[in-house]
Design a protein around this nucleic acid. Structure first.
Lengths: 231, 231
DNA sequence: ACCTGAACACCGTTCAAGT
DNA sequence: ACCTGAACACCGTTCAAGT
């Protein structure tokens, strides 16, 4: 039995097994726990054995992003540009929600991989297929920014509230005194009448901003906007 | 002379001197070079001496963000909400461009400091003063995201092009073959007729996206949008 | 030729010994 | 009581010694 476990672990390593183990480790233990040393231990090999399949840690992270991109659904062929892009981005978002570390890793990449370029190229192509000019498509991709991956840079990560409800109330009263405007919109986050902000509906916020952007894209497209003829 | 330098360095440390030295070190040598050990050396003290003024490295980074926020211009009192907010955000952007490490550090914070809350509170207040409902202001702040700081999460940092123009041409031809849509919009980045994308006008892209968002905010405000009455 | 243990050059932070 | 050197528990990666 122990022998069998050893055999499994000693199954020949390859790049794919390394990457999948890295994704699994990051999913389970968090990205901070993902070190070359920990990953090697997880795979039952010596740390240096990893360096035969990835040149260094940066390339490991690149490969992990590629695994994630592979999980994004291909575009629905029949829909108009707006719904097709919307669906694709929301699919990317579902993938990122399954892998909470992924947005941080994506942000940290300095060079896109071929797989990433494929994904971006296909999104760009969807705007072009929808009749967008090269010029407008360019600016629209910039405006989308990290939202093509399905994530927004939040102002600050939803700070976990203290468990003690009394302490919550104290914190909230302090907030309301010093930061009345923030307190106001924190309460507006939900309409169940609770006094304390319990965090927001991230999905709603994401779609609100995405649709607002798509509205603007559509309008400029219809108006024949170009970077040189704008008012 | 040497004595005098030593005296300067041994001037009593305080939190402010530590933070300013950290900002200066990050500006000059990059955020990766900013370690507690390097910072201490820069200040001519032993590493552990820093821990009397900041609890740990996280708090040092928090303090550095506070320094940056202090450089953002206060709001112009007389303008309408749209121009006032626009000006403020573009001021924040100029600050961030002076401190290239700042956006990454801001993103990495897990709890906003009091100074950061002050800044955000004042932005929220600007929407409220412009007549925005609490509800709409809430969603609008989310849609703005990191743009209230004056930065966009780029899809991938402008990868420095190889110096060799011949190598550039080869790379571009490969790109055009594999990623025709990306190649197309890369060329559109500028109209000087060069074949190779030389990076984009970041300021133009930022303002394009910001104005598109502000347009959308204005429209929804005028229409009396609420999260419950939307079509 | 392949594999890998030890070592290198770093981290942030703890802790106990020295003043 | 204050200050600080040494040490701890980590990193990613190099390199040379062992098979």
């Amino acid at each position: 039995m122990v022998q069998q476990v050893d055999d499994t672990r000693r199954a020949p390593l390859n790049r794919d097994r390394v990457l999948r183990a890295a994704v699994a480790l990051a999913d389970e233990a968090g990205i901070d726990t993902l070190s070359m040393r920990n990953l090697a231990q997880e795979l039952g090999v010596v740390p240096m054995a990893l360096y035969k399949h990835v040149a260094n840690k940066e390339q490991l992270l690149d490969g992990m992003v590629d695994v994630i991109v592979g999980e994004i659904e291909p575009p629905a062929g029949d829909a108009d540009w707006r719904t097709a892009i919307r669906q694709r981005i929301l699919s990317a978002r579902r993938v990122l929600l399954r892998h909470p570390w992924a947005s941080r890793v994506i942000e940290s990449r300095s060079q896109p991989t071929l797989v990433v370029l494929d994904y971006l190229n296909s999104i760009v192509g969807m705007f072009r297929a929808g009749g967008f000019s090269v010029d407008l498509t360019h600016h629209v991709m910039h405006a989308l920014g990290s939202r093509v991956w399905g994530f927004t840079q939040e102002l600050f990560p939803t700070s976990p509230l203290p468990a003690d409800p009394e302490l919550q109330a104290v914190m909230f009263r302090e907030m309301a005194g010093r930061y009345p405007h923030i307190a106001e919109i924190a309460v507006a986050a939900h309409d169940e009448g609770s006094v304390v902000g319990r965090g927001c509906d991230d999905q709603f916020e994401f779609e609100f901003a995405l649709d607002l952007l798509l509205d603007g894209f559509e309008k400029r497209h219809q108006q024949g906007w170009t970077s040189t003829n704008q008012s």
